[in-house]
């Protein structure tokens, strides 16, 4: 049975059902209890499950993550919320130096089944530190799983899977899509580490994740007008990377475009394109292209539309791979 709901409501339902299903699950973060979170993702959960399972934490991200580590030692499955992407850095040390390594450090004796939820990405006209895309820092760190969600069903199922997973999982939630609606069937489960082909096409493979999945699908529709048939892949898992799904697609289309909001320098597109070159070089008919944030700090809100990859920039890159007329050179 499926119901229409927003991504925010789907995430709320996933947290509720996880708390219901496993008494070791608990939530911890700033303003998640009484307020229900600044995005209301945890709305009503403190009332339902009590203040010891939905914890309003002191204002300290290192404390939130480090305390979750201690709770995991004692058998709990903490789900922590970082209020905004730009506030994860005070907790960065605990994530990369502790959470990511404990399983390895202890030869597999200690498990760290933490879920770290982070609203990420731009597009909401916010002040500084509220629009960051920090995924590459985490994807670069062995010992972490890093996943993104793109629509309400994916959000529900992926969140449930992340909480059930015995590894630490960072779930990046595209905050500008929180209010997008879709059908959600709570009986559908998701595989954490697989990408999905959202649309098949012949001419080029367009890879996106998180907030840009919707944009990529829109670009594919717009491309039809020019007679271009795009295949769209939602990467979902940023670490580990599902390179097989990408390679299989590129073998069919011969062309690859990767889009994300984060700056391109040493980024997910660096990795996806490298994997395609390694896995299916012979099938590439043109140099892979990427459409990313520029290599600058996230600009002031008034300029974010120029910074964020949109449909036009994506189609411009598609044109380049197809050798068609584009902004960099007239074909």
């Amino acid at each position: 049975m499926s119901t229409t709901m927003t991504m925010a409501a789907a995430l709320n339902a996933a947290l509720r059902d996880s708390l219901e299903a496993d008494e070791d699950v608990l939530l911890i973060g700033e303003d998640i209890g009484t307020l229900g979170g600044v995005f209301r993702i945890t709305d009503g959960l403190k009332e339902r499950f009590g203040a010891s399972r939905v914890i309003d934490s002191p204002l300290a991200e290192s404390g939130i993550i480090g305390t979750s580590v201690g709770m995991a030692y004692r058998g709990m499955r903490p789900v922590s919320e970082i209020q905004f992407d730009g506030f994860v850095y005070p907790g960065f040390d605990q994530i990369v130096a502790q959470v990511a390594r404990l399983h390895y450090r202890t030869s597999g004796t200690v498990q760290m089944p933490l879920t770290i939820r982070i609203p990420f990405g731009g597009g909401i006209g916010a002040v500084e530190h509220h629009s960051e895309s920090p995924e590459a820092y985490f994807a670069h760190t062995p010992g972490l799983r890093v996943v993104t969600v793109a629509d309400p069903q994916d959000a529900y199922s992926t969140m449930r899977a992340a909480i059930e997973c015995d590894d630490p999982v960072i779930v990046l939630e595209p905050k500008r899509r929180y209010w997008s609606k879709g059908e959600v069937d709570t009986s559908v489960s998701a595989e954490l580490s697989s990408a999905r082909v959202l649309r098949t096409g012949r001419d080029a493979t367009l890879v996106a994740y998180g907030p840009l999945v919707v944009t990529a699908l829109e670009a594919a529709v717009a491309a039809e007008d020019d007679g271009i048939d795009l295949e769209v892949i939602d990467l979902r898992s940023l670490s580990p990377l599902d390179r097989d799904t990408v390679a299989a697609s590129v073998r069919r289309t011969g062309r690859l475009v990767v889009a994300h909001e984060a700056p391109g320098n040493v980024s997910l597109s660096s990795e996806v394109i490298t994997s395609a070159v390694e896995d299916c070089f012979a099938h590439l008919e043109a140099a892979p292209e990427r459409v990313t944030g520029y290599d600058i700090p996230y600009p002031p809100g008034a300029l974010e539309d120029h910074y964020l990859p949109g449909i036009d920039r994506i189609l411009d890159a598609v044109d380049r791979t197809l050798g068609r007329r584009n902004s960099r050179e007239a074909a």
């Binding site: 520029y294 290599d295 008034a302 300029l303 974010e304 539309d305 120029h306 036009d312 920039r313 411009d316 584009n326 902004s327 960099r328």
Partner: peptide, 22 residues
């Protein structure tokens, strides 16, 4: 990247470059 941005902006139809998002 700055030059690519310039070229891309110039390639858009004029109505799309007018004003910037506030």
């Amino acid at each position: 990247q700055r030059e690519q941005f310039r070229a891309f902006t110039a390639s858009l139809a004029p109505e799309q470059t007018e004003g910037s998002a506030a």
